[in-house]
């Protein structure tokens, strides 16, 4: 099996101050990788380094190599010829707080498809329905697709964001504390969804909760003060004990 995301000597600075340093790691296809660490340790920055979203913040500079293996070959994320927009079309992202666009539910789903993938009309609507069903939102919103997305509840909004990201059919999906701002019920639904997705695409999830990490993770990356200080894999010897040992200091 090839590495889905491979990171080598990654270093990210903001205005000269290093936020991430000397990160080297690999994740595999069909695995769900959870990134853990205290707040401010740089785990969100690591996630954003994969789709070059750090560049949207002023004063950012990134060195090192990030490679993605996609079904049509390898993609060097930071190579000169890589267009950030095209990259981000293939690497979906869901944020901590639901960030629906200030449009209707339907337009939230259709606009990115049209702009990023050029899919319109029936085909786009078909994808929209499939993805809304997938996240369990279709029955809840099918009679009010023209309503503003902001009128949905927090958990519904987050599932809409997930559906919106999936509609672009990404091969890697990044999730930055996807359940941090939704209620318990919605959180469990999203977790089940993520587990069902991992056969189709590579998932990188930042998490702030130990039970969630235990439920979801095939692989754990522990970040402390901008450095990778621990790795855990479900297949390794004495997995359970190693898990407790590594994470007891973090949570």
């Amino acid at each position: 099996m090839t590495a889905a995301v491979s990171i080598k000597n990654l270093r990210v600075t903001f205005n000269g101050a290093a936020v991430l340093e000397d990160i080297t790691c690999k994740t595999r296809c069909g695995e769900l990788t959870v990134i853990v660490g205290r707040s401010g340790s740089g785990k969100s920055t690591l996630l954003r380094a994969v789709n070059r979203l750090n560049e949207c913040f002023p004063g950012c500079s990134t060195t090192g190599v990030v490679r993605l293996s996609l079904h049509d070959g390898q993609l060097a994320v930071y190579a000169d010829g890589t267009c950030p927009e095209r990259l981000r079309g293939r690497v979906g992202m869901v944020f901590q707080s639901p960030n629906v666009l200030p449009l209707s539910i339907e337009r939230n789903m259709l606009l990115p498809q049209r702009l990023v993938r050029g899919i319109t009309g029936r085909a786009a609507e078909e994808i929209m329905r499939r993805m809304l069903r997938r996240v369990g939102l279709f029955d809840e919103v099918c009679d009010r697709m023209d309503a503003q997305a902001a009128t949905l509840s927090g958990g519904q909004q987050q599932r809409l964001c997930l559906a919106r990201a999936l509609a672009l059919e990404p091969e890697v999906l990044l999730l930055d504390e996807p359940t941090a701002s939704v209620d318990y019920q919605s959180a469990r639904r999203i977790e089940d969804l993520l587990l069902s997705l991992k056969d189709e695409l590579s998932l990188l999830v930042v998490s702030h909760s130990l039970p969630q990490t235990r439920r979801l993770a095939d692989r754990v990356l522990l970040i402390r003060e901008g450095r990778l200080t621990g790795q855990w894999h479900r297949g390794q010897a004495n997995a359970d004990a190693a898990f407790e040992k590594m994470l007891s200091t973090t949570f």
Partner: peptide, 16 residues
């Protein structure tokens, strides 16, 4: 008043 709200989302979706 509007651009900062959608900047990250639009970028993460791959919009130019």
């Amino acid at each position: 008043t509007i651009e900062p709200q959608v900047r990250l989302t639009a970028a993460a979706l791959g919009m130019a």
